[in-house]
Design a protein around this nucleic acid. Structure first.
Length: 556
RNA sequence: GCGCCUGUAGCUCAGUUGGAUGAGAGCAACAGCCUUCUAAGCUGUGGGUCGCACGUUCGAUUCGUGCCAGGCGCGCCA
């Protein structure tokens, strides 16, 4: 709706520029001003022109104004524009009529749960890989935040017309998994009474003991002799499968459903790796040095070249990862987004170099770094260290504050910024807690609509609205019209956070309206139009919350 | 030492392709608003050298450079 009006105004402005012999500056921008005093749409064309014509922008805008007003009368969009004003230093501002605003409501009534959705993404195939935690322990809050960001990002990308998938890459091989196997074995030996030094680099968490017990139960191991018969691989396989079950359950309870589970062992096996390396050797992307094999990542901007095969013949972490990315591209994704923790930012140049070596643009691969969340309890930071087994798991946070609050809090800041997560605040059912502010607006609306229906047999009006003129009503409609733009913005920047902010603003505008305007009024005409308005608010809140994976309760 | 990120109100943070002679919100503090649709709400008050200094221009919290402060990363680890 707003996009539609904007396009028409854009044409109008282009046409008006004929008075300057059709000089058209490159960046004509029709913006939605932050301050409503500056209208619903604002154009910077005069400021742009001033650079080209070397004239005062304000004077240029004044010159354009009469022509614009004249042209407007001949266009259909004319009835939606109340007036055009020029403001220093040269902005041309357009103000909508109440009728113009009501157009937003008609759009929402027509599109309902699809309001905000669009074809912006042209069905392009995106792959978002996130969490991808090694199966060496339960998910932490860091994974939780990455899961929330990735999940919501995919929701939004899909809403604006991308074909986006969620992918989890399971590192079921390599050093960490070997250590996991040894850790389980060592705990099993201890349980059977053997005195073994628990390895320094092993996983220290209590869950390893539980797993060792479960391993022995499943394999009917009663003695050390039984245990000795188990091959090392058995411990690893058991560990991976056990912990992947734990991880999958955590994610499911958190409301995150992956479309694709990729296993390192299936994609990046020795054969595939060697094929890639010989391909790279042919193209001279790798070379021998100091007994190892090096990838020329500096060719694409990395600080130094990287080892892909160590002098002992083992691959580094990077090597199977290149094969994995080759696999992803081969599956037809035009853009690949990997969501990682901040400890991986040094990894970005080399994996981007790999994408380039695979024949893609470095822009086809995006690495999104999601900063850590610091957990506070009673104002004190809770320390975290996976290695020592002291950490707060996603499970604990979910159990303590609930799924809605957990997801919401993880999304409350830009993904690139550190986040403070106060467990006590998230748990509180009080005004300080921002989750409830939005949900409460939704529940309030539901209650009013139900009451109107049950007690007064009053239904919302959805066309030919004439009564909505109060500033609070206009504000609300203005906000509702922004959802499509907000979602496209989130998709562009890969930041779901502005949707959270937007919903808070919509809720605020509603609460303000609620306080000044009575919906169920003596004036039935007004009442039914207001019912229509709040119905539209409910649609926007519900659509937004659905994208966030947060429930929209009807009662609170 | 090199690289990345961050410095905005007492606290937590918005301000995204440079925009509106008054830089916003929430929390905390204080003062009000329920015989009427959910007070998990609303209204008002106080609170700032946008880390510092230059530069680019009609205009800089936004861009550039240099400092200052904090966080993180720099393995033939994953």
């Amino acid at each position: 709706m707003f996009a539609d009006i904007r396009a028409q105004l854009q044409d109008l402005i282009k046409e008006s520029l004929k008075i300057f012999d059709g000089i058209t500056p490159p960046g004509i921008l029709i913006d939605v001003p932050a301050d409503k005093q500056h209208g619903e749409f604002s154009c910077n064309v005069a400021l742009q022109l001033s650079r080209l014509l070397r004239k005062n922008p304000l004077a240029l805008a004044e010159q354009l104004l009469p022509r614009l007003q004249e042209l407007l009368k001949t266009k259909p969009v004319g009835v939606k524009i109340a007036r055009i004003e020029v403001k220093a230093p040269g902005f041309i501002n357009f103000y909508l009529t109440p009728q113009g605003f009501c157009g937003v409501l008609y759009d929402i009534f027509a599109q309902k749960e699809n309001y905000g959705h669009c074809g912006f993404g042209e069905n392009k195939k995106f792959c978002l890989e996130f969490v991808s935690a090694n199966p060496t322990g339960p998910l932490t809050v860091a994974h939780g935040r990455q899961a929330a960001v990735g999940d919501v990002l995919v929701n939004i990308l899909q809403a604006v017309g991308f074909s986006a998938k969620r992918e989890y890459y399971v590192n079921d091989e390599g050093n960490q998994i070997n250590i996991l196997g040894r850790s389980i074995q060592a705990r099993a030996r201890q349980a059977l009474g053997q005195e073994v030094d628990f390895p320094q680099d092993a996983y220290q968490g209590e869950y390893i003991r539980t797993m060792a017990g479960e391993f022995m139960r499943r394999h009917h191991i009663k003695t050390l002799g039984d245990l000795d018969k188990q091959p090392d691989a058995a411990f690893r396989q058991f560990g991976v499968s056990y912990l992947m079950d734990v991880i999958k359950k955590d994610l499911e309870d958190f409301g995150v459903h992956f479309d694709i589970w990729s296993y390192q062992s299936k994609i990046a096996h020795v054969k595939a790796i060697e094929a890639l390396l010989s391909e790279f050797r042919k193209k001279e992307f790798v070379y021998d040095g100091e007994g190892a094999l090096w990838f020329k990542s500096t060719q694409w901007g990395d600080d130094k070249d990287r080892v892909v095969r160590k002098s002992d013949g083992q691959y580094t972490y990077l090597t199977p990862d290149i094969v994995y990315h080759k696999d992803k591209f081969a599956r037809g994704f035009v853009r690949i987004v990997n969501i990682l923790g901040p400890d991986h930012h040094g990894y970005i140049p080399r994996i981007k170099a790999a994408a380039a070596a695979l024949g893609h643009s470095v822009d086809d691969l995006d690495i999104l770094i999601v900063q850590l969340a610091t957990i506070y309890r009673n104002g004190k930071e809770v320390s975290m260290s996976t290695r020592r087994g002291e950490f707060i798991s996603l499970r604990e946070v979910m159990d303590e504050v609930g799924r809605d609050a957990a997801r919401f809090f993880f999304l409350m800041r830009q993904a690139s910024a550190h986040l403070e997560f106060d467990l006590e605040l998230a748990k509180k059912q009080s005004p300080e807690n921002p989750v409830y502010y939005i949900q409460y607006a939704h529940a309030r609306i539901h209650s009013i609509i139900r009451k109107a229906h049950e007690e007064q047999r009053l239904s919302p009006k959805t066309r030919d609205m004439k009564c909505l003129k109060q500033p609070e009503e206009i504000d609300l409609m203005r906000k509702l019209g922004l959802l499509p733009d907000i979602l496209i913005g989130c998709a562009r920047t890969l930041e779901p956070f502005s949707l959270v902010r937007y919903l808070q603003e919509v809720a605020a505008a509603f609460h303000k309206f609620y306080d000044t305007c009575r919906v169920l009024d003596e004036d039935k005409e007004l009442s039914s139009e207001r019912l229509g308005l709040i119905g539209a608010v409910q649609v926007v809140l519900a659509n937004g919350l659905k994208l966030l994976g947060v429930s929209a309760p009807e009662k609170m």
